[in-house]
């Protein structure tokens, strides 16, 4: 299930061929980088890191510059997590690390030694969707689908954040308990941009899961 299936490989092939930025940020093959590492200042530096991704540990030898996003996509073939802006502005790269959602593009893989990462592949499977995935399908919470893995990872964490009582910009009384409301969900999802503009359906999908879990 988690291996690079044929479909994923061919999609990646197209992306690498078609988008210069993706090709350029992919780390060089390890052997090549190791040779260069001995070449002096400014040469790539390698480091070993162990990440637990969707419950399974993976040890990688990475260029220190490799972001968590590139480690997941380019080195472990968890291509469900998407690269949008690569600057923390769009949220397509959202994953859950040790229970918290973060932008995997603005974090170095080497800084995650021993951390547990959950990607969209770890939330549910095609046969057994996570309730949030099922709700996005039911409510048409996407059009092109590129931002969807980030939206879903973010949405799952948003419900946990509201339940944990973490305030948001629209929480009336920050000392009180935030409401499980559409207004709260909208504000908390503002770090996930959808250029197709599926926002209203996304809020409906999340609200449905929120209501179900509340009952």
């Amino acid at each position: 299930m988690h291996g690079p299936g044929e479909f994923e490989l061919s999609r990646r092939g197209i992306l690498v061929g078609g988008a210069a930025s993706v090709a350029m940020t992919a780390a060089p093959p390890i052997a090549e980088a190791q040779e260069a590492a001995s070449a002096g200042a400014g040469a790539p530096v390698l480091a070993r890191v162990t990440l637990k991704v969707n419950g399974k540990p993976h040890t990688l030898e990475l260029d220190t510059r490799t972001t968590l996003l590139d480690a997941l996509r380019e080195h472990l073939q968890f291509t469900g997590t998407k690269k949008g802006c690569d600057h923390g502005q769009c949220g397509a790269c959202t994953v859950i690390v040790d229970g918290r959602r973060i932008n995997s593009c603005l974090s170095l893989a080497v800084m995650h030694e021993g951390d547990s990462v959950t990607t969209i592949e770890g939330l549910g499977t095609a046969e057994k969707l996570h309730p949030m995935q099922a709700a996005f399908v039911k409510h048409d919470g996407y059009q092109c689908g590129y931002c969807t893995p980030g939206q879903i990872c973010s949405a799952v964490a948003v419900l946990d954040e509201i339940r944990a009582g973490i305030p948001s910009h629209v929480t009336g009384d920050v000392a009180g308990k935030p409401a499980m409301s559409a207004e709260e969900i909208r504000e908390r999802m503002s770090g996930n941009i959808c250029r197709c503009g599926a926002y209203s359906n996304i809020v409906e999908a999340i609200s449905e899961v929120a209501a179900r879990r509340k009952a």
């Binding site: 949220g91 959202t94 959602r101 973060i102 973010s154 770090g191 996930n192």
Partner: peptide, 8 residues
Amino acid sequence: ASGQLRNK
């Protein structure tokens, strides 16, 4: 910022 960014 955003929820994701504030977590880091």
